[in-house]
């Protein structure tokens, strides 16, 4: 038995040129779940709320109040973005913790893997193989698509004659444990900052990056540009790092001791899921605020000057 850990999401199929990775599949599951739940919660809105409506109201109202404290009067512009960030990231984080996600899958020979796509989904360098004495007793059932339900530690590679190595491919993988997802969210967040900046300030917003008034402001503009690009990276890797690390931790713990011991770590990961969703959405709100209030003091000063 070996422990299978892959930094990248595995590719399942390719449909019309679009590679379907297991984390993309999970993202769709999360989306479906969210849509179904929100339809159920808001299907019959009444003055005296039902339980479902009450939960939805508490969530949305709570987020509204919470972000309202940061975003202030511009909350109505930002709210769909930041609330969706929070809800979607939270749901994705938690769905990644469900049993079966990352553990239910099938074995695929490397040849088949190469056939699906040129590049192997499992990066050799990121693969940790922990051999145990069970290895010798393991039946050669690699060709059969097999569900491993025992624990989140999955048998990763098995010896098989003729085909060489086979790789374990989980059908579902935590959506935020994939850099594509987190990078996508980060890109959306940073582009939203520029969008809201231009929408609120017009051409004046450009002065944040390109400013020829004086050399100090010019270099500050370059720094702002670099910092916005670095925001993409930090957003993406913070979320990915936390969630992926959590999944690796859970896999290792479950591999070492499948019963009871993972529970406190599972609790911890639930908590981390909330915290990361909160951090992502709160930072986005704060940066959005910074972007739309760029040069507000100058504006105010100029207006004051003009009126005086």
């Amino acid at each position: 038995m070996t422990l299978h850990i892959s930094l990248a999401a595995e590719r399942l199929w390719t449909v019309w040129g679009l590679p379907i990775s297991n984390s993309l599949l999970t993202a769709w599951v999360v989306m479906g779940l969210l849509i179904v739940l929100s339809v159920l919660a808001t299907r019959k809105l009444t003055m005296v709320p039902s339980t479902g409506q009450l939960i939805a109201e508490t969530l949305v109202g709570g987020l509204h109040d919470f972000f309202g404290a940061i975003a202030g009067k511009r909350l109505d512009q930002f709210f769909p973005l930041i609330a969706s960030l929070f809800i979607f990231i939270l749901a994705a984080n938690w769905v990644g913790l469900l049993p079966g996600v990352g553990t239910v899958g099938y074995f695929r020979s490397e040849k088949a893997e190469a056939a699906v796509e040129q590049q192997a989904a499992v990066i050799p360098g990121a693969e940790v193989a922990v051999p145990t004495e069970e290895d010798s007793h393991a039946p050669a059932a690699g060709t059969v698509a097999e569900e491993t339900t025992a624990s989140s530690a999955a048998a990763a590679t098995k010896e098989e004659d003729g085909h060489g190595k086979t790789a374990f491919v989980p059908i579902l993988r935590g959506a935020t444990a994939d850099l594509n997802m987190t990078l996508a969210l980060a890109v959306v967040a940073v582009i939203a900052m520029q969008y809201f900046g231009f929408r609120n300030l017009g051409a004046h917003y450009l002065g944040r990056f390109v400013n020829f008034k004086d050399p100090i402001l010019f270099s500050v503009g370059i720094l702002e540009l670099v910092s916005d690009i670095s925001k993409v990276v930090s957003f993406a890797f913070r979320l990915f790092g936390n969630i992926f690390a959590g999944e690796v931790l859970l896999a290792v713990i479950a591999f070492l001791m499948p019963f009871f011991l993972p529970l406190p770590f599972l609790m911890l990961e639930l908590f981390v899921g909330v915290i990361q969703a909160l951090v992502f959405s709160m930072l986005t709100t704060a940066f959005l605020n910074v972007a739309v209030s760029h040069g507000e003091e100058e504006h105010a000063a100029a207006e004051h000057h003009a009126s005086a």
Binding site: L7, A8, P19, S38, S84, F88, N180, M181, A184
Partner: peptide, 24 residues
């Protein structure tokens, strides 16, 4: 090595935008 693929990235951006509009 990090598994970043432009097509997947784009798909996830679209996913998020869709869920944002739908949730709104």
């Amino acid at each position: 090595k990090l598994g970043i693929e432009p097509s997947l990235l784009l798909a996830q951006v679209v996913n998020f935008l869709v869920i944002m509009v739908v949730l709104q």
